[in-house]
Amino acid sequence: MGLALLLVVWLITFVSTYFFIAHPSWMWLPPVATTYGPQIDSQFTYTYIAMGIVFVAAQVALGLFAWKYRDRGHAAAYYSHGNIRLEAVWTILTAILFVGLNLMGQHIWAQARFQGPSPGSEQVEITGMQFQWYFRYPGSDGKYGRTLAKLEDPSTGNALGIDPDDPAAKDDIVSSTLVLPVNRELDVTLKALDVIHDFFVPEFRFKQDAVPGLLIHMHFTPNRIGDYEIDCAELCGSGHYKMRAGVKVVSEADYQAFLKAPQQWLTEHPWNGPMSRGLMQESEAKPPAPALQLAMRHHQSQAENH
C-alpha cells in the first residue's frame, strides 16, 4: 500500500507539473496586450516557481515517507515529540518566502491602482447593465454628457440615459464594441446601472468590478493591435455568461476614423473574435451580427426620438 501511494502521489505530482511546464498555449495566460501586463506575468512566474518547488517537495516527501516508513514489522517507530529548532527554521523560511513574494508584487499593484492616469490620456466610459456593455467616448469637447436614470431605456437606443438637453452630450459617442487606440494610455471610468458586473479582458491582464453607486477610475495602456473578448467576471444574473463584448485595439489612424464615423467604420471593420490567439474554430467563425455592432452618434438617435 505504501508503494501504491508513492506511485500515485508521485504520478499526480509529475503529471500536474508536466502540464504546468509544457503547457499548450490554450492552457495558459493568454499573450499580453498591455504595457503593465508583463510585470504581472513575471510576478506570476516567480510565484509559480516558488510554489511549484514547495508543491513537488511536499508531495514527493509524502509519497516517499508513506513507502519508506510503512510497517515492515521493524522494531518500533522513532519516539520523538518533534524538534523545536527544525520547527523554528521552517517557520522562518516560510515566513520569508510568503512575505517576500508579497512585497515583490506590491509595486505592480501600486502602479496600476494608486496612481491616476497621466494627463491627456484617452477617456472611455464603460457601463455594464444586464447583460450588455456600453462604451462611451466624450467626443471632441472631452466631457461626458449628463446622464439621468429616468431616461435610461435600451429600447429607445438610449440605454445610458444621456440627457439630450446637456450640450456636453451632443458629441458623445456610444458603442457596443470597444475600440481603443494602440499605445495610448486610457482613462477608464467604470459604471454599473443595475447590478455588479466585472470588466475582464484576459489579454489586458485587466479586471475590475463595475459597481452600482460607484464611479471607478482605472488606467492602462493597450500595446498590441488585435481583437479581444471582454467577459463579464462577476455573477450578474441569468444572462451572465452571455455578457461579453468585443474590444478592438487599433492604430491611431483607424481610431480617428472610428471617432469620425463610428457606425460606418465598425461595419467596414467588424470585430472578429480573438483571432490573435488562434482559438477561432473555423466552423464557428461567422461574421458578427450587425445588431451587436450597433454604434451611433448619440444626438442622432435622440433627434429621432424628439
Binding site: Q43, F44, N102, G105, A112, P202, F206, K207, A233
Partner: peptide, 15 residues
C-alpha cells in the same frame, strides 16, 4: 499565495 496577491488576483480573480 497566488490569489492572496492583489497583483495576481487581477488575472485570476473570479476565474
Amino acid at each position: 499565495p497566488f490569489l492572496a496577491q492583489p497583483t495576481l488576483d487581477i488575472p485570476l480573480h473570479d476565474t
